[in-house]
Design a protein around this nucleic acid. Structure first.
Lengths: 232, 232
DNA sequence: TTAATATTGTGTCAATAATACACAATTAGT
DNA sequence: ACTAATTGTGTATTATTGACACAATATTAA
């Protein structure tokens, strides 16, 4: 089994920031720990990598345990590896963030993990280096969403442009010009008019669009400049 | 020592793609292995993370062993963790790329590691998943260099705009319009005219510039769009 | 000494994109 | 039908990009 002699073997964990959007604020899932160490304190969802488990498989497993969802959009951020980052025993943690439609996840899965949605603005203190992880995740989300059509992952299948705008305003905590935003989004040709309207609205009902999945996947890595530099 | 019971501990390695530029072509350092496994074959420079060694410290150690340089620019790419990626024993590898001035590194350090510079265009087959790592490193370098002034890390302290242009042409394997490139670079105000000239040139000698270090560090994360989308 | 050659620095112009706005249309509730 | 809130679309100005031309500098060879 151990064929490289005299080498150190370490615990390898994954920790995940799950972002969601409720129509008003950017939210994330955190866990109230009901186990030691740090029982009762807040942490990110995580888990150890199994002996015969690929890293990607472990990430999907952890996201599934938390949300009951498969094929979630997620992205690696950084591997945290300070010697004493976990005071119990040295653990390397591969940190990633995931984006989900907040209304689509399984409530029971979240409950079983003791998970709660909180607004990024009221984030409590988290254990270990998890605060640093969240800061980096938000930074990466902002970076990525400014250039690539990543925001759609946080919305339902059908959504209006005002909804999308509110999402961007929540991500960047900054107002966006309605007219210019709409023009930019429509010029990408990523949206298909469903000819339905947003019935939730109390005044003029906005047109609901869906993603052009083909184009979305083909052009995902293209630059779009959704958000101007000064706002990021 | 082992305080999380029943959990798997894994070997944790680092593997590094070191890029350099000789004035004509984009190059990288690879190792001819004189040890088993895969003795005689080509691989990336790497090493295991020590028992009491921070990840960042290990990365700097490995880069120092290879190049004799400290404070090198490097950036994490991804952590590779397929179960059977190392056929000898399961090993997680944190992959990163580094950029150095090819003329500044220590030849003896490279020799002691059995390292050689090769052009990206003549890259031989590498062991394990190292080919995949190089592909990803090049992709990340192209992405990053298109938006951020990362290219300067590959040049000497004093360099001309034509030199910088040749570097970008090498990175993207594509010709660049001289006039527009020059305008774009100068408009960033990142360059300071040293009022010296490039004596290597056989015709009109180009002006040598140096980096405005202050501005470089302050605006590193600003978007610059050095390279148009169609070229990346 | 001058002409030829290669390369560098700078300039122009049209097309495109970004920014800052204004106005008309839709819907629910008075 | 009038009001209030919100949505969809338009327009004028400014800034940036992309395609191109030309003059200046340095070396080499006639």
């Amino acid at each position: 089994m151990e064929k490289y002699p005299n080498k150190t073997r370490l615990l390898v964990a994954l920790d995940c920031i799950v972002f969601g959007f409720d129509g008003e604020e950017l939210k994330m899932l955190i866990i109230k720990r009901n186990f030691e160490p740090e029982k009762g304190n807040w942490s990110l969802m995580g888990g150890f990598v199994g002996k015969e488990e690929d890293l990607e498989v472990a990430a999907n497993r952890i996201l599934y345990e938390l949300t009951g969802l498969k094929d979630i959009y997620f992205e690696e951020i950084k591997t945290f590896g300070k010697v004493s980052r976990d005071p119990v025993e040295r653990t390397i943690s591969i940190c990633f963030f995931a984006l989900i439609n907040i209304h689509a996840h399984d409530q029971d899965s979240a409950k079983s993990q003791n998970a709660f949605w909180i607004s990024l603005k009221n984030k409590p203190n988290l254990i270990f280096d998890h605060n640093e992880m969240v800061d980096l995740a938000l930074e990466k989300l902002r970076y990525k969403a400014a250039l690539h059509p990543i925001g759609f992952e946080l919305l339902p299948d059908k959504f209006s442009i005002p909804q999308l705008q509110k999402l961007y305003e929540a991500i960047y905590d900054n107002p966006v010009d309605r007219r210019n935003f709409s023009r930019k989004i429509l010029s990408t040709n990523l949206l298909i008019d469903t000819s339905e309207k947003d019935e939730k609205s109390t005044t003029k009902k906005a047109i609901l669009y869906k993603l052009n999945q083909d184009k979305y996947q083909r052009q995902f890595n293209a630059f779009h400049y959704f958000i101007s530099e000064s706002m990021r």
